[in-house]
Simulated scan of single mutants.
Amino acid sequence: MAPLAKDSSSTRAMTKVAHLYYRRGLVQTEIAEEMGLSQAGVSRLLTAAGEHGIARTIVIPPSGFHNDLEQAVEETFGLREVHIVETTAGDDVVPALARALVPVLQLAPIDGRTIGLTSWSRALQAAVDVLPDLPRANAGHIVELLGDVGRPSLQHRAALTTERFARATGGDPVFLRAPGVVSTAAMRAALLDGDPHARRALAAMDHLDLALVGIGEVRAAAPLSPGENFFTDAQFAGARAQGAVGEIGLRFLDAYGEPVASDLGELVLGMELDQLRTAGRRIAVAGGRRKHAAVLAAVRGHWIDVLVTDETTARHLVASGVDTGSIAS
């Protein structure tokens, strides 16, 4: 038996392909379509899985992989892929989630694609920080999915993340250098009227092949502060009073994954939920106990089809799906 590959992205890919082939009974063409790979690539991964002892008619996942739990979440909510990381109680889950997202991005089909990026998400920023340049990658446009939020230093950090991701993927960055949240709908209209670059970014969101998003609570979470190109505490409280339990790109969802009707949507310069829905692939990274309700809302509403999360959140999703059933939007 060949020694197990040290590259975690290769090991995860071998395990995932073996799981789909031996445990779920998918043929190689189906696996290739689901994972965005060529059939030859699937064949090579299956061969490597056998050589490394991951697959021997049955799948033997290496320590730290949770294929049965991943499959349970996928089947409960109709997700294309779920990737689960182990974390220690009390730890910040962001670094582990970021590391797990990297191989997902490395395997995603990106050539010529229009990719939306929530560049102010902490997990996505951390993933881009450690993402190596993808050899021979030739992405299309890399579109920021929300305008500037937070203090200037955070806005600068988001712009650098977009620029770094575009360089790693060979894409053309499309920046949205306008406030992410404004005070009135009239101000939003005036900003768009005078800023062709912002209009271009918003229009590009109609044609997303891949969307990379975070999932948030209905509150200002550090390092963001209420009211700094962001919703105030009172506005967040109003959204919660209307039933909001989570948000994607500051678009609020209720516990069933349904959009929350709110005038606050008219104050946001960023992707609409309808634009997210039509994206070819929608990858979210989120975890931690405080986000359980928000992540559950996102998968219940089928707003995403690939999820990177932690084990505790995944078990909460399965338990909630068994208790109440997954509710389609």
Rank of each mutant, 00 (worst) to 15 (best):
Ala2Lys: 13
Pro3Phe: 13
Leu4His: 05
Ala5Leu: 14
Ser8Cys: 11
Ser9Asp: 14
Ala18Tyr: 00
Ala18Gly: 01
His19Cys: 11
Tyr21His: 09
Tyr22Lys: 09
Gly25Lys: 06
Leu26Val: 01
Gly36Asp: 00
Gly36Asn: 06
Leu37Thr: 00
Leu37Ala: 02
Gln39Lys: 14
Gln39Met: 08
Arg44Phe: 12
Thr47Phe: 10
Thr57Tyr: 11
Ile58Asp: 12
Ile60Gly: 00
Ile60Tyr: 00
Asp68Ala: 08
Ala72Pro: 04
Glu74His: 03
Glu75Leu: 02
Thr76Asn: 00
Gly78Thr: 08
Val85His: 03
Thr87Ile: 06
Thr88Asn: 05
Ala89Ile: 07
Val94Asp: 05
Ala96Gln: 13
Pro103Ser: 06
Val104Cys: 04
Gln106Ile: 12
Ala108Lys: 03
Arg113Tyr: 10
Ile115Cys: 01
Ser119Glu: 08
Trp120Cys: 04
Ser121Asp: 15
Gln125Glu: 15
Gln125Asp: 12
Ala127Gly: 10
Asp129Met: 03
Asp129Thr: 14
Val130Tyr: 06
Arg136Tyr: 09
Asn138Cys: 12
His141Ile: 06
Leu146Ser: 00
Val149Leu: 14
Arg151His: 07
Arg151Gln: 13
Ser153Ile: 10
Ser153Glu: 15
Leu154Ile: 04
Arg157His: 13
Phe165Gln: 02
Ala166Gly: 04
Arg167Leu: 15
Val174His: 04
Phe175Ser: 01
Arg188Cys: 04
Asp193Gly: 13
Asp193Ala: 15
Arg199Pro: 00
Met205Leu: 11
Asp206Ala: 10
Ile215Leu: 10
Gly216Phe: 03
Ala221Cys: 11
Ala222Trp: 09
Leu224Tyr: 15
Asn229Pro: 03
Thr232Leu: 13
Leu250Val: 06
Arg251His: 14
Phe252Glu: 03
Leu253Thr: 02
Asp254Thr: 13
Gly257Cys: 07
Glu258Thr: 13
Pro259Phe: 06
Pro259Trp: 04
Val260Phe: 04
Asp263Gln: 14
Gly265Tyr: 09
Glu266Lys: 08
Val268Gly: 01
Leu269Asp: 07
Leu269His: 14
Gly270Asn: 08
Asp274Ser: 15
Asp274Arg: 15
Asp274Glu: 15
Leu276Ser: 00
Leu276Gln: 03
Leu276Met: 13
Thr278Cys: 11
Ala279Leu: 09
Arg281Pro: 02
Ala284Glu: 13
Ala286Pro: 05
Arg290Ala: 15
Arg290His: 14
Lys291Thr: 08
Ala293Gly: 08
Ala297Val: 12
His302Leu: 14
His302Tyr: 13
Asp305Phe: 02
Val306Leu: 11
Val308Pro: 05
Thr309Val: 13
Thr309Asp: 07
Asp310Gly: 11
Asp310Leu: 10
Ala314Arg: 11
Ala314Leu: 10
Arg315Thr: 08
His316Ile: 04
Ser320Asp: 15
Thr324His: 15
Ser326Trp: 12
Ala328Ile: 12
Ala328Gly: 10
